[in-house]
Simulated scan of single mutants.
Amino acid sequence: MKIVVIGGTGLIGSKVVKKLGEHGHEAVAASPNTGVNTLTGEGLAEVMAGASVVVDVSNSPSFERAAVLEFFTTSTRNLLAAEAAAGVGHHVAVSIVGTERLPENGYFAAKIAQEELIEKSPIPYSLVHATQFFEFVRGIADDAAIGDEVHVAPVGFQPIAGEEVAQAVARVAVGEPLNGRVEVAGPERVQMDEFFRDALSALGDTRAVVTDPHARYFGSELTERSLVPDEGASLGQIRYRDWLAAQ
């Protein structure tokens, strides 16, 4: 089966391509550096030829509110049009657990707009909602830093290894379209402030983690369930400490 992976040279996309290839599929990594640009449409018709499934794990180069919205809506419209012309039968997209709970967050709002375009398209689809990746722990801490302190809310947090996100995406890609979503998360649900206190210590980061109920997550104030999955989510098996030790 030919499966085109948009963003296939990135963190998750490269792992998805590898996993699909290991199972005998023709997995094609598509990104600007392979001549495929979803914003301009360059290379889309060519890469879609003969494809059965398209997996979109691309990301916006800018997280500024207007820019990220423009990226996800324009690229998704172009992708869906190219897929329809090529007769692609399954569109898979990666999104975030809790997008609908933080609509004031510019990035989450852009992902909601992307999902709405996919849901309204005639192409059968599957959405994979993932929690935060272990790989982004330091970046999340940096965004939450105020001077030498990292301010984090005492709310639920259930991050996951990128490897297990890729595994879930690959599994969904070769299955029947869900015409709905599946949630994936890490094996441990903890308090976010406690997680970052332990995680930064393990990374050798000496910044103090301050428990702050009003701390913002990329501009949004969180509630207990903002970032955690609902019941029935597919859970990974890799724990953060074990993942970190293996890096």
Rank of each mutant, 00 (worst) to 15 (best):
S52N: 09
H151F: 01
G13P: 07
G87K: 09
V4R: 02
V184H: 05
V182G: 08
P154A: 07
V150C: 06
Y107M: 12
V97H: 09
A113I: 11
K2I: 08
V17L: 06
D198N: 06
L44F: 00
I140F: 15
H214D: 15
H214A: 15
V97N: 10
E224K: 06
I96R: 05
H151P: 03
A161R: 07
T223E: 14
E70S: 14
D148I: 05
D242K: 04
V172Y: 04
A215F: 03
T131F: 11
F108S: 11
E115K: 12
P213N: 12
T9W: 13
P61D: 06
T223S: 15
V16S: 10
N105M: 15
V137H: 02
L117P: 01
I140T: 14
L227I: 12
G50P: 04
V209L: 03
V137T: 15
A84M: 03
L203Q: 10
G219R: 05
E164A: 08
E119A: 15
I123T: 15
G87Y: 03
E64W: 04
A185H: 02
V36K: 01
S52Q: 13
L20C: 06
V47T: 04
V57K: 06
A67S: 13
D205P: 04
T206V: 00
A66Y: 00
Q114V: 06
A45Q: 01
V150E: 03
F157R: 01
V174M: 14
D205G: 09
I238D: 04
R65F: 12
L11H: 05
N37C: 12
T76D: 03
V4G: 01
E224G: 00
S58M: 06
T131L: 12
E149D: 15
K111P: 08
T223V: 07
Q247D: 02
L44M: 07
A145I: 06
Q167H: 12
N179S: 09
G180H: 15
F196H: 09
E183W: 07
E83T: 04
A153Y: 02
K2H: 06
Q132L: 14
E83K: 02
A185R: 09
A49F: 01
E135G: 08
A86K: 00
I3H: 08
I238S: 11
V155P: 05
E224D: 14
V155R: 05
D230A: 14
